[in-house]
Amino acid sequence: MNWIDNFVRPKIRSFLGNKRETPENLWVKDPESGEMVFYRDLEANQWVVPNSGYHMKIKPADRLAHFFDNGHYSTVPLGSVPQDPLKFRDQKRYSDRLKEQRAKTGNDDAVIVATGQLYERDITVAVQDFDFMGGSLGMAAGQGIIAGLETAANRKTPFVLFVASGGARMQEGILSLMQMPRTTVAVLRLREAGLPFFVVFTDPTTGGVTASYAMLGDIHLAEPGARIGFAGARVIEQTIREKLPKGFQRAEYLYEHGMVDMVVHRHDLRAIIASLAGILTKSTPIAELNESAPVPRVTMREAAIAAEGDGGDEGDLVTAPEGAHAE
């Protein structure tokens, strides 16, 4: 018995333990069509399902790498804020939640700010990470948005915000809500400097973020299908006791009702923002874009919004060749 217990069984366990397992993320299911998509194909397509065009969530590092020229950018220090100022505790301590989220995402909080170039022009970009406590707006996230706006003002560059959030962070109470006026003041300072502020709505954008800086951009763009609103659809239906229209709070619905200026495919965001930034800053038009895909056409409605009050003319527009994709 000793020989069996001490030799045979450990050998069997080691053999079973070394059995090769299939990675869990080898295939990803499209939430819209149910199609199974190969992980690497999805990653190479910027997390857009090739057949249905469904825009899945993309990590901040991947978004920044795809947005900046050659994927080169530098992150901006955001400054420190008090950690767990209210000593909040529900099922677990807030400080422990922060440690878990930082270990999971590799980021200090929900906002990352970076500087780099977009078609050889300096630009400042901020990304809200929904994986970090639902992209909630707390003191650190608010400080990150302000740092991004101030960096853009100091460097005299346009500012682009990719926003995704579930609202204010309840663990910080009133201190979280105070980030709404703080970020609003920072937006006004950028506007006083005469620099454009682009907001790109991604899925989802809700709560206090929608009620503050997310709706203060000079131009609002949105990814297809993004949910944008203040309160949730079910809460609204229970309050007004009526059925909401189909597609309510989706990017396309808000575009039809004037809350969003453009609904833009993720692959086209670089070219569209570069073109509009050139109009708003009265820069020399981009003569040649080194992209494999053609530049999406800027419609007259977007051009009118962008050029309003700045004396822009049609010669500043970058238009796509015949047959190019246009949203």
Rank of each mutant, 00 (worst) to 15 (best):
N2A: 12
V8T: 11
I12D: 01
S14D: 10
F15V: 11
L16E: 14
G17A: 07
K19M: 12
K19R: 06
R20T: 09
E21Q: 15
E24I: 10
L26R: 13
L26Q: 13
E32I: 02
G34C: 05
V37Q: 03
E43P: 00
E43W: 08
A44C: 00
S52Y: 03
Y54N: 07
H55P: 00
H55F: 01
K57P: 02
K57D: 10
I58P: 00
P60F: 08
A61K: 15
L64A: 05
A65Q: 13
G71F: 09
G71P: 04
H72M: 07
G79Y: 12
Q83G: 00
K87H: 15
F88M: 12
S95V: 10
D96N: 09
R102D: 03
A103G: 04
K104W: 02
T105L: 11
D109F: 15
I112H: 07
T115L: 06
E120Q: 15
R121F: 09
R121T: 15
D122Q: 08
D122T: 02
I123R: 10
I123D: 06
T124Q: 10
V127W: 08
D129Q: 06
D131L: 09
D131Y: 09
F132L: 07
M133L: 14
G135V: 00
G138N: 11
A141C: 03
G142S: 03
I146R: 09
I146C: 05
E150Q: 13
N154L: 03
T157K: 05
P158L: 08
L161N: 10
F162R: 07
R169F: 02
R169K: 12
M170K: 11
M170I: 14
L175M: 11
P181F: 02
R182M: 12
V187H: 06
L188E: 13
R189Q: 14
R189H: 15
R189C: 08
L195P: 08
T202N: 13
T205Q: 01
T206F: 12
G207D: 04
Y213C: 05
A214N: 11
L216R: 07
I219A: 06
H220Q: 14
A222W: 10
A226T: 03
A231S: 09
A233D: 14
R234N: 14
R234W: 12
Q238E: 15
R241M: 07
L244T: 03
G247Y: 05
G247I: 10
R250I: 04
A251L: 01
L254P: 00
G258W: 05
R266C: 02
R270T: 00
I272N: 01
I273K: 02
I279M: 15
K282L: 12
P285S: 04
I286N: 03
E288L: 13
P294M: 05
V295N: 00
T299P: 06
M300K: 06
E302D: 10
A307R: 12
D310T: 12
D310L: 13
D310Q: 09
G312F: 01
D316F: 02
T319H: 09
A324I: 03
H325M: 08
A326I: 14
